[in-house]
């Protein structure tokens, strides 16, 4: 369970998150929508501790993000997939995936690599195991990014616009994998501009606007005319994103 209570995040004078309350239950798939600059990335980065929160609280499975020791535990439980992939360029694909399992989870090297290989197989990239990231296409890199995240056997998967740097074809190949994961029951928090994708995989949609949660509704409610769309700001956002 992820419990966010009255979360505030400032960057100097700029108030980015202004009192966010959010609970995410195990097995839930939650999509976070919202305009550019509304604080979606910041919210994700507060959960995995890449940003220090200004006030309020975040607990992941009862571990407190403000506590250094707890944060390490949180990071073991939450894996992040990044928009720009952010793979380690000096390591082979296999080593990219196995690095944290070996060094953080202290898995045996051989086992970690066998598991990494299985993950690669699941995204149909096993023949790329010994290749370096620079030799991969964007879509392939992101599939590796997903493998790297899954190798930690996380309870929660945090996704921040993981297809925004990809062309439509590559986006499709990544979304297929994420859809499969969502069906398998992994808890997912996904920031996305792919409305169709959000509609397909989510249990719940959270709409962020200027650092506050404007709506937090089940998917069906959110996309219904009397639910989410009754809010003019959301209706405008959806029409801009190409959803009528």
């Amino acid at each position: 369970m992820i419990e966010i209570h009255d979360l505030h995040k400032d960057f100097g004078d700029l108030k980015v998150l202004k009192g966010v309350d959010l609970k995410i239950k195990p097995g839930e798939v939650v999509s976070i929508l919202g305009g550019s600059g509304s604080g979606k990335s910041t919210l994700i980065r507060c959960i995995n501790g890449l940003e220090k929160i200004t006030s309020g609280s975040i607990f992941v499975d009862d571990f407190d993000v403000r506590n250094k020791k707890d944060l390490m535990e949180i990071r073991k439980r939450c894996s992040t997939v990044f928009q720009q992939f952010d793979l380690y360029p000096h390591l082979s694909v296999l080593d990219n995936i196995a690095l944290a399992p070996i060094n953080v989870l202290k898995q045996n090297k051989k086992d970690a690599k066998i598991k990494a290989m299985e993950l690669l197989r699941s995204v149909e990239l096993e023949e790329k195991a010994s290749v370096y990231p620079a030799q991969l296409s964007g879509g392939q890199k992101q599939r590796i990014g997903i493998c790297r995240a899954l190798a930690m056997e996380p309870n929660y998967l945090l996704l921040d616009e993981v297809t925004s740097s990809l062309d439509p074809e590559m986006t499709a190949e990544v979304l297929v994998i994420l859809k499969k994961l969502a069906k398998e029951g992994i808890t997912m928090i996904s920031v996305t501009h792919e409305i169709g994708f959000a509609q397909e995989i989510s249990d719940r949609i959270v709409f962020l606007d200027e650092g506050k949660i404007l709506q937090n509704l089940s998917k069906d409610e959110f996309f219904s005319d009397e639910g989410g769309k009754s809010d003019p700001r959301i209706a405008k956002f959806l029409s801009k994103m190409g959803n009528q």
């Binding site: 990044f82 380690y88 060094n103 930690m152």
Partner: peptide, 18 residues
């Protein structure tokens, strides 16, 4: 070095020393 990969590593609970 591209610093974003260091954030990625941090997010996977690698220590600063690692």
């Amino acid at each position: 070095i591209d610093k974003k990969q260091l954030e990625a590593a941090r997010s996977f609970a690698l220590s600063e020393w690692q």
